[in-house]
């Protein structure tokens, strides 16, 4: 086995040490920082991009919240205005109706008054007619014409009775 020839060991060991040392320096100082730098830069870029995206998302959410609040306020305001208008209209209608009712009431009272007066005057006339009719009846029955006062008294007592 050539592996067990001690005379060949030293050159291998010396060149192993030299090549490995140089190779290590090349890797550690040249190749690996380059590769690691790119990987780190990419990771940082992805991280910052994600952070930017997160910030934008948060801003969007804030904008949505502000919009919704404005919308709610506007709704509230619109509701208030509508309520006010309704109240105003209701008050106007009520006032109008009350005025109308009062007018109607007074007209009804006037009419009642007129009716009452008419009734009273009619009743008075009825008394006069009844007296005339009664004196005529008495005249035709007994041929005597009673005095006007007597007849009126008799009619009044008959009405009372």
């Amino acid at each position: 086995m050539p592996q067990l020839a001690p005379a060949d060991w030293l050159p291998q060991l010396i060149w192993l040490a030299i090549v490995f040392a140089v190779f290590y320096v090349l890797m550690a100082k040249l190749a690996l920082p380059k590769i690691g730098g790119v990987i780190d830069a990419r990771r940082d870029k992805i991280k910052s991009d994600l952070e930017t995206a997160d910030g934008l998302r948060r801003k969007t959410e804030e904008a949505i919240a502000a919009y919704e609040q404005a919308l709610a306020e506007a709704k509230q305001k619109a509701h208030g205005i509508a309520q006010e208008a309704r109240d105003k209209l209701n008050a106007e209608i009520t006032a109008e109706r009350e005025k109308l009712e009062a007018e109607l009431d007074s007209k009804a009272a006037e009419a009642e008054d007129a009716i009452k007066k008419a009734k009273e005057s009619a009743l008075k006339e009825v008394d006069g007619i009844a007296t005339d009719v009664a004196s005529d009846i008495v005249n035709s029955l007994i041929g005597v014409s009673p005095s006007k006062d007597e007849t009126a008294k008799a009619v009044a007592s008959a009405r009372q009775g």
Binding site: D8, Q12, V19, V22, F23, M27, L30
Partner: peptide, 20 residues
């Protein structure tokens, strides 16, 4: 000391050069 450049050393150099 025997520091001869052998075929073993040559392939070590080739490997290091290839990878680098």
């Amino acid at each position: 000391l025997d520091a001869s450049f052998t075929n073993s050393g040559l392939f070590m150099v080739i490997a290091a050069v290839l990878v680098t």
